[in-house]
Amino acid sequence: MEQEQTLKITKIKDGIVIDHIPAGKAIKVLSMLNVGENSRHTISLAMRVRSEKRGFKDVVKIENRNVAEEELSLISLIAPEATVSYIEGFNIKEKRMLKIPEVISGILKCPNQNCISNSKEPVQSVFRVINSNPLIAKCDYCEREFKGNELLGKQ
């Protein structure tokens, strides 16, 4: 069943496949990767594909693009159980399970407007993950705790 559904999108020659994204979150994942209307990559997107594990899931395929470690951390915050497959010549070269990092540095802005990390000081934002699913992380500067939607809302 899963095989049949996944085939709704064609195989890609080179690029990445992000699978097991929670149903409905694929567009958020693409926006995290800054893939928008100006993107030069061919993108396939399947939403609400039937999945044995979780009922429904989303799948994203981006041709001729790689993902950086930083981007993987960011995706893991929205899709903590996603897998990323690196495809070369139609074959899976490497498959990685995403994992929420213990420390999220530099990629998120502190939602607390009054936090020093949002000023022009020469520091990166740092959050320590207190709980991964649902995501709760604490700013290393103002020490406030934030839920996933608060952290990701304005990114």
């Binding site: 936090c115 000023s119 520091v123």
Partner: peptide
């Protein structure tokens, strides 16, 4: 003493 939260933590670094 500083008006922004986390300023003392930043200072200590």
């Amino acid at each position: 003493r500083h008006p922004l939260e986390g300023a003392a933590r930043l200072a200590s670094r």
